[in-house]
Design a protein around this nucleic acid. Structure first.
Lengths: 148, 148
DNA sequence: CTGTGTGCAAAACGTTTGCATGCCT
DNA sequence: AGGCATGCAAACGTTTTGCACACAG
């Protein structure tokens, strides 16, 4: 998403009601690169807006995702995470602590795909997930495989 | 995974007990390219082995995944899917019907990653998920976006 | 004023856990 | 015979649903 203000404008155009709860969620997500879960967002918003319900956070995140302001990340089986950056980028997931870092280098060459496949499916989007171990986990020796 | 027989041998080496339930799950997975969920596997095995429990299917799939015989796929938020093909390949997900097809062309050029990142994380593995619409869904006009 | 968004509670769903029993080795 | 795997039931955590109320437009 862009700034809170610009996002509000986009939502207004889509006839969405601009509620204080929505604005708080936007503030939490703006520039947030930590890929928070719905629960994470709820906890943060609750500090500023104590009466908000988890359900409302789910509703707002669903709307933001459906309208393309944010992107739902399906990497952690236990809970969805949300990415405020909807531009093309990829993720590196640490097999140890499960943290998700962003990569802004496009590693994919769609031109390698045969025309048959391009024609058969309408590829609109793609994600690359790289799996490894982050520095912290390497230092702690948390790898379950390879070099001791 | 390879053939049921070869997989059994690998599991035997790992001191896993070869139970009839395990064998039935292996039979369901062998050569299966439909990326079934635990529930799907359960339903199929139950036809041949009516007393098997869903829990047992979960246990077996977990073991097979942990030992590298199959691979858990985290694409569908609602349920894990399992891929009997553990060789490097990617997935095309239909935004309409959510079916997952396999792509055996490697689209990724890891060499594009700066050495800094390669050194920082130990990239061991990567997945590419392409999103589009399969032929069926295109014919049905199920796209939610673009060209009518 | 109208109806969408909120908040509460309860339900739903996939998955995990606990435990007694069974059967592979 | 010993102990891991099974099967049943209950628990768990996330997400969804239903409904009355509130407030943005």
């Amino acid at each position: 998403m862009e700034t809170v203000e610009k996002t509000i404008e986009k939502l207004r155009v889509l006839d969405k009601r601009i509620t204080p709860q929505l604005i708080e969620v936007l503030k939490v997500m703006e520039g947030n690169t930590s890929h928070p879960s719905a629960g994470d967002v709820y906890e943060k918003v609750k500090k500023i807006f104590p009466t908000i319900s988890l359900n409302t956070v789910y509703n707002i995140l669903k709307t933001l995702n459906a309208t393309g302001q944010i992107q739902e990340i399906l990497i952690d089986r236990e809970r969805s995470k949300y990415d405020s950056n909807v531009t093309l980028h990829h993720h590196i997931i640490c097999n140890g602590c499960k943290r998700i870092d962003d990569i802004f280098i496009d590693l994919v060459d769609l031109a390698k795909l045969p025309d048959v496949i391009i024609a058969k499916y309408n590829i609109k989007d793609y994600h690359v997930d790289l799996y490894g171990y982050c520095k912290d986990c390497k230092d702690k020796g948390s790898q379950e495989d390879s070099q001791t």
